[in-house]
């Protein structure tokens, strides 16, 4: 068999497996979200209803739309700020020699390995004394700090692969480091930058513990906590609501991912990378 053929078969099988693997549980989620009874594979029958979707949007006490809005604002701010902060740090570490380069990089990484539960008490006190409890900054600031190592390391791995010749030449022409960073490195690093933004956005979107402890109601609470609030007094789990809410909540993320794909894959930049 020719190489092209093997490749084609592998690709087809791989793609099929990938889609089934990733989507089956999600399809099941959607099935539960439009089913009147979550146990339709057991004793109940499958009755299609859109009640769950209607309910979560219209029942005021669930505050679904408030939580969604909060999540979007918080995550977008975090993703953008964090990506910029991380990119500038990654640029410095990959291009400039300075004392503490390695300790700082490793230190930032090491700090991110602490379990969140051990940090939450301190953050609560801090936010309380700053009067920020139940506001967006109470979530945005810790989220940036908590996701910046991920962004930093993704971008470090990416930027360190961009050849130095380009920026060296610009600097020789008298451009400042800031200008080189903005005009040359950032555009070339776009694929890395966008995958970092995407992953950070999702991380912030999904964070639970900080959001639970640092907010007290729907004026700043985010989706995961909002969904956790659906649960009833004795642990009744309104599966339909939960699944409908998560399906709706994942829409912005999927859209974002689709939009960003264009930037993640940039054939033009390939020539600029060292081999």
């Amino acid at each position: 068999m020719s190489e092209a053929r093997v490749r084609k078969i592998l690709l087809a099988v791989g793609t099929a497996f990938m889609i089934v693997f990733c989507l089956t549980p999600f399809m099941w989620m959607i099935a539960v979200s439009v089913s009147k009874y979550p146990d339709f594979l057991g004793s109940q029958s499958f009755v299609v209803t859109f009640r769950n979707y209607l309910d979560i949007i219209t029942i005021g006490s669930l505050h679904f739309l408030d939580h969604l809005r909060n999540s979007l604002i918080v995550s977008a701010t975090v993703a953008l700020a964090c990506a910029l902060i991380a990119a500038s740090a990654a640029y410095a570490v990959s291009r400039l020699r300075f004392r503490g380069r390695m300790p700082i990089s490793l230190g930032v990484l090491a700090l991110s390995t602490f379990p969140q539960i051990s940090l939450v008490g301190y953050l609560y006190k801090l936010m309380r004394s700053l009067g920020l409890i139940n506001t967006y900054p109470a979530l945005i600031l810790p989220y940036i700090a908590w996701t910046v190592p991920l962004g930093f390391w993704i971008l470090l791995s990416y930027i360190s692969r961009i050849p130095h010749d380009l920026d060296d030449a610009a600097i020789a022409d008298g451009a400042s480091r800031g200008l080189v960073f903005r005009k040359i490195v950032l555009p070339i690093a776009a694929p890395g930058l966008f995958s970092a933004i995407l992953l950070i956005f999702i991380a912030a979107f999904n964070e639970f513990l900080f959001a639970l402890m640092l907010t007290t109601d729907h004026s700043a609470r985010t989706i995961p906590v909002g969904i956790a609030l659906f649960q009833g007094l004795h642990g009744e789990i309104p599966w339909g609501y939960i699944m409908a809410a998560s399906t709706l909540a994942s829409l912005p993320l999927v859209t974002l991912a689709m939009v960003f794909q264009r930037y993640v894959i940039q054939d033009i930049t390939r020539g600029a990378l060292k081999g």
Binding site: L212, T216, D217, V225, A228, L229, Q231, G232, L233, G235
Partner: peptide, 11 residues
């Protein structure tokens, strides 16, 4: 002023 919490007892 009501401070809202989820149902999960650990939380």
């Amino acid at each position: 002023a009501i401070l809202r919490q989820p149902t999960d007892t650990d939380q």
